[in-house]
Design a binder for these strands. Structure first.
Lengths: 377, 377
DNA sequence: ATTCCGTGTGAATCTATAC
DNA sequence: CGTATAGATTCACACGGAA
């Protein structure tokens, strides 16, 4: 359907970076989120986490099978006249968010089917570039008491950069480590916020939609660095601030309900930062000091003249003193030569080439790991 | 934020039903989906399943680490000039879909983050009432080869009625039975379409985005009755038709690509109404829940900074914020670090590492068991 | 017959840096 | 701006042939 002209493949462009203005962080701004964001300078925030009103449009009371009444969200701040008025509100706060976010910063927004499609479309309309949609699969959702629909067992988060060419932070290795050495997927199973973690005031929940700290923990660990400034324009009871403090990030919260503010300030004051050794995370390979193949030769982990082979022993290459390889008259880097021999456009030489030990072939990547363990802080 | 006037709780109104016009079903309409839908009378369809183009906006070629090229969707039918042109297309086919759908009929649309937010907003704008968003969690998604984002491991389906007061069909008990007597949730784990089920032409896949029959099976079983008419305006290779025939539903498909039409017609001709052996294939094995070590850290079952030891107290490791461990300058996952320290090729960190409680060492696997007991549905 | 291993592949917005 | 080069990167499952 709807055939259009072919779109030419896009190329990455570097984003020109002006120095980010210094702002005061680790504080709670009291007031309307749009007005308060408007007071902040351009490009001063590294990451925004936003949990806006969902515009739930619930009907009357809902009762459980055993008779209890469901304590639903019925706050004024979640009420909008029409879809259009919700859209105008969304567009207004997203425009401010985009302005104060650094060029290479990213934004997260969480929502449910009531609002997330409108938020996602608005993000794209504003020029944000969606990086992932993330499904928070609730381990323990509320059942559908009436048996009228599927149990609504998840919420959706959208993660977006300022544009297609932005150089956003993604702590790939940290996420992989967190997930037992498998790539972190777009679906996250986490329990809802309850028990000790759920904040109470006078015996009832302090906020109707408090998010679990585990969710913010994963979000923040994935796309920020220690010291980064995280802004939450719908601060509520301050989950974002508490996790930021714990993880050694700076935070700014915006909230206008005095009840929530009071709870948030107490909570963050009590939050304990992790110490440095606990905070250290697996650095991404890109941030790691790169180990050149030649370094392994220089430092004696591999002798010039050693013979490397691919896993099927189709090709044998000789290691030369400068860290290049030779196969017959072909020479080049471990990557380049592997690609050339296979006729492939690219090749990861670290896993392509092997060295023989006791009759068995081991990828040379294991040498690099050994080197890193011995030589990295 | 954005307080608006209170909205009065809405009450359910019965929808007045005119007799549905009789139409000819179990046939494939050749042509553009909007033009073909326009030829159908008002209110003649019980359920619509739509798998529209996703408007992927892919860049250049993508290569796998070992050198192979990813066979991506590059068909003309997925190309649109701008977001606006995609929106116009979406609005046009949704308007027709709404007209031909019975007042108590429902519509399903599937998509990814590239298009689903625009589709969802358009559905709401047209007056459809969203009943659920459903997450298809792929058991076996394609990895993110470059390590630049979270693995895109799901697609989203939206299920909607004609309006808030429509009396739609939901086979609650059938869904509960299908899910081992637990309410069916909004997240479905199903494998992608491959193996014998994946249709081929001349040795290559007949359609780049063939959906698994298990997905259509669950959709159709949940919200249609035997004999209902199901329409698929983006028929492709006819998964919807094949499953409808199997489940004793009537179907109408719209497709304009002759190659897809040919494959679909063959396939549906061969499809057999459901028998027990076919049912067995449809049943998806429930997956063993996996818990990553990092989840225990995120959820507070284990604090960053805690000390773990092997059973003989030869090594002590510190837990870090991302779920990795540190012993002196060595760091890694519970498995990797256990292996490195012992000089072994592999190690089960769950049984290797222990935590001390009241002077006694307990394997961290017991923490995992505790977590599972508390958080599994 | 059963297990093991190698290979292929799936709706994917998939690099960074120097010159 | 564009081009060239160095360097980094994958999970689950199906299938077929070998052991």
């Amino acid at each position: 359907m709807g055939v259009m002209e072919r779109v030419a493949p896009r190329r990455k462009k570097a984003v020109a970076l002006a120095p980010a203005p210094a702002i005061e962080a680790n504080r709670l701004l009291r007031g309307d989120c749009i007005a308060e964001m408007a007071k902040l300078p351009d490009g001063c925030i590294d990451m925004i986490f936003a949990d806006p009103p969902y515009n739930l449009q619930l009907g009357g009371d809902l009762f459980r099978p055993e008779g209890g009444r469901v304590d639903a969200v019925d706050n004024d701040w979640d009420k909008f006249d029409t879809l259009s008025s919700y859209d105008r509100f969304t567009k207004a706060w997203l425009a401010q968010a985009r302005r104060i976010l650094k060029p290479n910063g990213t934004i997260w927004v969480i929502g449910s089917y009531h609002n997330i499609f409108r938020v996602g479309a608005a993000l794209q309309d504003e020029g944000f570039w969606i990086l992932n949609d993330i499904i928070w699969r609730k381990a323990n959702p509320m059942p559908n008491f009436k048996g009228t629909r599927f149990t609504n067992a998840h919420e959706t988060l959208i993660w977006a950069s300022q544009g297609e060419d932005a150089k956003y932070t993604f702590n790939y290795k940290a996420m992989k480590t967190l997930n037992d050495e498998l790539q972190m997927r777009s679906d996250w199973v986490l329990p809802i916020c309850g028990g000790q973690e759920r904040l109470k005031r006078n015996g009832t929940k302090a906020h109707p939609t408090q998010k679990p700290e585990s969710l913010l923990y994963r979000v923040m660990l994935s796309c920020t660095k220690p010291g980064d400034i995280v802004l939450d324009p719908f601060f509520g009871t301050g989950t974002t601030g508490a996790v930021a403090k714990r993880l050694g990030r700076q935070w700014i919260g915006i909230e206008r309900e005095p009840d929530y503010i009071e709870v948030a300030e107490e909570r963050i004051a009590e939050a304990l930062p992790l110490d440095e050794s606990a905070l250290a995370i697996m650095q991404t390979a890109r941030q790691q000091p790169k180990v050149a193949f030649g370094t392994l030769v220089e430092t004696g982990y591999l002798q010039p003249g050693s013979v490397l082979m691919d896993s099927k022993r189709r090709w044998s290459a000789t290691v030369r003193a400068d860290g290049s390889l030779a196969v017959g008259s072909d020479t080049g880097s471990i990557h380049k030569l592997g690609a050339t021999l296979q006729g492939a456009p690219s090749c990861n030489g670290w896993t392509f080439w092997h060295i023989e030990k006791a009759g068995k072939l081991h990828p040379i990547d294991t040498l690099r790991q050994t080197y890193l363990l011995a030589n990295e802080p």
